[in-house]
Design a protein around this nucleic acid. Sequence first.
DNA 1: CTTGACGATTAGCACCACTAAGTATACGGT
DNA 2: ACCGTATACTTAGTGGTGCTAATCGTCAAG
Lengths: 104, 104
Amino acid sequence: MRAEAIKGHVDLLVLSVLQRSPAHGYAVAERLRKRSSGVFDLAEGTIYPALYRLEGQGLVESRWRTVGGRRRRVYRLTTAGEQALSGRRRHWDAFATAMQAVLS
Amino acid sequence: MRAEAIKGHVDLLVLSVLQRSPAHGYAVAERLRKRSSGVFDLAEGTIYPALYRLEGQGLVESRWRTVGGRRRRVYRLTTAGEQALSGRRRHWDAFATAMQAVLS
DNA sequence: CTTGACGATTAGCACCACTAAGTATACGGT
DNA sequence: ACCGTATACTTAGTGGTGCTAATCGTCAAG
């Protein structure tokens, strides 16, 4: 998937995968790859800064976890994150609908 | 419509409205506004540079027309533009499908 | 003659995803 | 032991692209 296409939608994607259950950055990337059938193959330089951004906005929160000697920072949605997610879903729907209207 | 959402899709939108018939920049913006029911209200600083970019890529071509004393640069799709459009439509479909898969 | 719609241009800014490199642990194969 | 690969995080720098805002100009309506 070309980079520019997902601009402005990465946060929505990340929030969406975190809604099901908390996850660390690497797992977020994996879930996105899997759930999109490989279409969203986001670089680390995309996913981690996105998580920092979301944490800065208070939409996710994190804590360190050590599993088998590996440090993981596990993120989960905050209440504000849940609300933001539902708003962004509606925003996406409006966008996709408008795109469809122009393209049809 | 927030700016970031359409990043990477403006070219597709512009090519799409030009496919029906040639148009000048101002008219392209109007058509987009109308066909999207006001969702896509693109600034001039977005639409004109997009047209220049597309012309630079050989996807559209333009010629000056004077109508009632007003200069207009009328753009129309080239053959390469038609092909690019159909490719980008498929690309959009893949993107929208993947988004839906992640969000659902 | 002032206002607003039409129509185009462009310099500068800001955001955001990517590249690329670095750091570090675990584990399987040789 | 050594090496490659997967896992896991960080971050400086770059580039694309849409926006802001200003400028220049014509025309019709008030």
